[in-house]
């Protein structure tokens, strides 16, 4: 079936079965490969995108459920790494292998969009993505730095 999706401000059409997870429609059909596949069971967060502004794990989210919603992927943040979260991630040297970082960044961005100055507890509960390189303390620092950068804007 053909589905019209609103992705990163564009209307894009994908021809897939109704049960196809958004992750795979975006990666394989639209060739937007910034969003990663990690577990396929919404456990690790590598596939996190924004659906109507909320961080959502898309490896189990069927395409048929997101028609008409505003979908944003890592590719939407900026053309030049100028988004405060990207700046903060670069300043704090957050990524190591980097594979989980698209999901981390999208989860962190959704957190900051909903709460401009999150507490440590807010960060603990919002950032449940898995990182095997152990960048967690830098993710936390990166979020705090992004708060400062956003406030300075």
């Amino acid at each position: 079936m053909s589905y019209e999706l609103n992705i990163n401000g564009e209307t894009l059409s994908v021809d897939v079965d109704a049960d196809t997870p958004l992750l795979w429609a975006v990666r394989d059909n639209l060739k937007l490969t910034g969003t990663k596949f990690g577990c396929g069971v919404a456990s690790c967060g590598a596939c996190t995108m924004h659906i109507d502004g909320q961080a959502v794990r898309t490896c189990v989210l069927p395409v048929s459920a997101v028609v008409g919603k505003e979908i944003k992927t890592i590719e939407s943040l900026s053309d030049d790494n100028s988004h405060p979260i990207q700046q903060a991630w670069i300043e704090e040297e957050v990524p190591q292998c980097g594979y989980c970082q698209s999901g981390m960044i999208m989860a962190a961005t959704a957190l900051l969009n909903n709460k401009a100055n999150p507490t440590e507890k807010d960060i603990d509960s919002a950032m449940t993505n898995i990182c095997r390189c152990g960048t967690y303390s830098r993710v936390r620092k990166g979020i705090h730095r992004a708060v400062e950068l956003m406030a300075a804007k």
Partner: peptide
């Protein structure tokens, strides 16, 4: 602590991993 060369690619989804190869 020279800045990592790969970080800019790893904050915007452009770093190419094996799974991304086209």
């Amino acid at each position: 602590s020279a800045k990592r060369l790969d970080t800019p690619l790893k904050v915007n989804g452009t770093a190419e991993f094996g799974i991304d190869v086209q």
